[in-house]
Design a protein around this nucleic acid. Sequence first.
DNA 1: TCATGAACGCGAACAAAGTCGCATAATGAA
DNA 2: TTCATTATGCGACTTTGTTCGCGTTCATGA
Lengths: 217, 217
Amino acid sequence: MKSPSDTEAAPTKLALRPDDGRLLRGQRSRAAILKAARELFAERGFDRATLRTIAERAGIGASSIYRHFQSKEELLIAELLDLQEESWRQFRRDDQRKAPTRERVSRFLDCQHALLAEDSDLTLIALRATTRPGARVAAQVLSLNDRTIGLLMEIMQMGRMQANLKRSVDVLEAARVVFNITQGARIPWANGMTDAESCRKAIQTGVDLLFGGLEKS
Amino acid sequence: MKSPSDTEAAPTKLALRPDDGRLLRGQRSRAAILKAARELFAERGFDRATLRTIAERAGIGASSIYRHFQSKEELLIAELLDLQEESWRQFRRDDQRKAPTRERVSRFLDCQHALLAEDSDLTLIALRATTRPGARVAAQVLSLNDRTIGLLMEIMQMGRMQANLKRSVDVLEAARVVFNITQGARIPWANGMTDAESCRKAIQTGVDLLFGGLEKS
DNA sequence: TCATGAACGCGAACAAAGTCGCATAATGAA
DNA sequence: TTCATTATGCGACTTTGTTCGCGTTCATGA
């Protein structure tokens, strides 16, 4: 399910149309574009899939894509949003809220990894999008990241309450660190320097390190 | 018929020319390009600085740039390489090898931050470069990252030896985590979501968390 | 019925990175 | 000198994401 723009900073739209009308045509097009894009991204990878090719397969003109998306990257990001939702759903489905925090975090990351590991372009383009300050994709990815961090924070906050973690821990910062560990570990993987499994292990090792700490106590 | 000497041992140059000749012209051009590029990047930012503008200011043709660099991004990366060296030099200049590991790491990161904080494009484009698998820029940045990680590892290894850190710590992984913390913290900053000082604090907080660990002992 | 306005679609055009084939210049060998 | 070689330079061209202006469709309100 998606409702990406709840409040559109609305300049007060003068006349809202009911959900039916010529919007249907638009929705069909949007779906066709996304389908074609996902296929072509899977076949050739993001950079080799041309907007003109995508448009052709979707049966519309290339420039029409911009009626529905603001940039090529947004085509992939739309997919990433869906995938993240899915991974969170999977996590929640059999999450043991009373399990040790470290374990819960670990499972959360594994769920995410399992879905991302199927398509390195998702990671890559999301990262690239964050190097476009001001663009909508950048904001989208950044806000997606914030949601991920929020979920991690939630888990860790619960652990802190249950005296599972140190009282002094700043859960927001801790969640950020965990998130950064995953992001960092995925870069070499997305560049083909390591395989998905090494990436997963790197993430888990990093999390273990963070939980245990480095200093002698 | 032709190019019989194109065996596979590429590194062996078939016909070495002395260091002087028309190479001088090339070196001058290369320097002029870099100078023009740095100026224009500073004036307008990376994305708004056009290769043709850079070429014009450097007094050569746009396509000639590709005799010296493989991509626009490489123009910035060259600068980043210099800057990193400089930051390491600064760190070493008054590094106290006997100081607590946490402090040394902290200082290392501050040195790095001080130089990077002056130009967010450096961070941004370096990150973007890592989303171009196969490109030379990607390899350059990745290898630069590895060097940074190596230095961090060196510091932490020393700490481990001096019983400053837990024996069980995997210093390579720990160094990676520290590095990832810095990378992750810089993304919101480069996107204008936070200022340089918040970025610095985020890094330091993250490192503190990592050193102390999350779990109750 | 007809004007209105909004969402959609399209081809042409633009911008800018990157490629190609050829020209030039400098060097050493014959 | 002359020739071969090689680094450098360049303008025309290609590619590709994106913009623009104009046309089309269609629900609504008078």
